[in-house]
């Protein structure tokens, strides 16, 4: 059976001003299959990032569940959820680099507990940077990079652990045409029969590449709809 990431009636309530509750997501259901790239678009504040965070296991929904390979991972205890999250690579909307560390150190952050030697750590870090054409930045501190470079570093960080599920929030933000093309190319290469890729994007460049996205969704007013 193909693996899949499934949202089942996901709702998220947030406490607003004056103690009232606001539904950020309402009964969102979708199936994201392995070997496919899904793009989720929608207006600003629709809850795209929130949905991605729930799918990545960073946030638990108020109602409903996320199933990975038919297992309710969002309902698991923290220890098991942390271990499942090793299969997930996440690119945040803002790069979230640790500024006092070098680019290479930022990239290898996800795999430090799992790799047995420092040499192997460095090798995998360089490989991830090389795949995005930014290995020359390895020794630079995070704060010295431009926004676009930081975003590419954060993508390298997401793929260094060779995740089965790649979740990216606006990966082509701050990128010029060349940079965006390189990222789209890399993400296209990343598409494999056993990987699930979910991207939240405003960027029309992503939607324009027809051989890139297999499915497109729109999130509006807390609900998710698949676009044909």
């Amino acid at each position: 059976m193909d693996s899949a990431l499934v949202c089942q009636d996901i709702s998220l309530l947030r406490r607003g001003w004056e103690g009232s509750q606001r539904a950020v997501l309402k009964n969102v259901s979708a199936v994201f299959k392995a070997g496919q790239v899904a793009i989720i678009s929608g207006p600003t504040g629709a809850g795209k990032s929130t949905l991605l965070h729930i799918l990545a296991g960073l946030l638990r929904p108020s109602q409903g569940q996320v199933l990975a390979d038919n297992r309710p991972v969002s309902r698991w205890n923290t220890a098991h959820r942390d271990r499942w999250r090793r299969k997930v690579g996440i690119v945040f909307q803002h790069p979230r680099l640790l500024n006092e560390l070098t680019v290479l150190e930022n990239v290898i952050l996800p795999i430090i507990p799992r790799v047995s030697s420092i040499a192997r750590l460095r090798q995998r870090g360089y490989e991830a940077l090389e795949s995005l054409g930014i290995s020359h930045l390895a020794g630079q501190p995070g704060f010295a990079l431009s926004g676009g470079e930081q975003q590419r570093v954060s993508i390298a960080r997401a793929i260094v652990s060779q995740p089965e599920i790649l979740i990216a929030d606006e990966p082509t933000a701050h990128q010029d045409e060349t940079g965006a093309a390189a990222i789209i190319h890399r993400l296209t290469e990343w598409k494999r029969p056993n990987t699930i890729t979910i991207i939240a994007a405003h960027d029309a460049r992503l939607r324009r590449h027809s051989d890139f996205a297999d499915r497109q969704f729109e999130l509006r007013c807390g609900g998710l709809k698949e676009l044909q």
Binding site: L58, R83, P113
Partner: peptide, 15 residues
């Protein structure tokens, strides 16, 4: 915030 980042990348509480 860094603890959150570590956990987002698959570090467990034990790590």
């Amino acid at each position: 915030y860094e603890v959150g980042l570590y956990k987002a990348f698959g570090w467990t509480t034990a790590d």
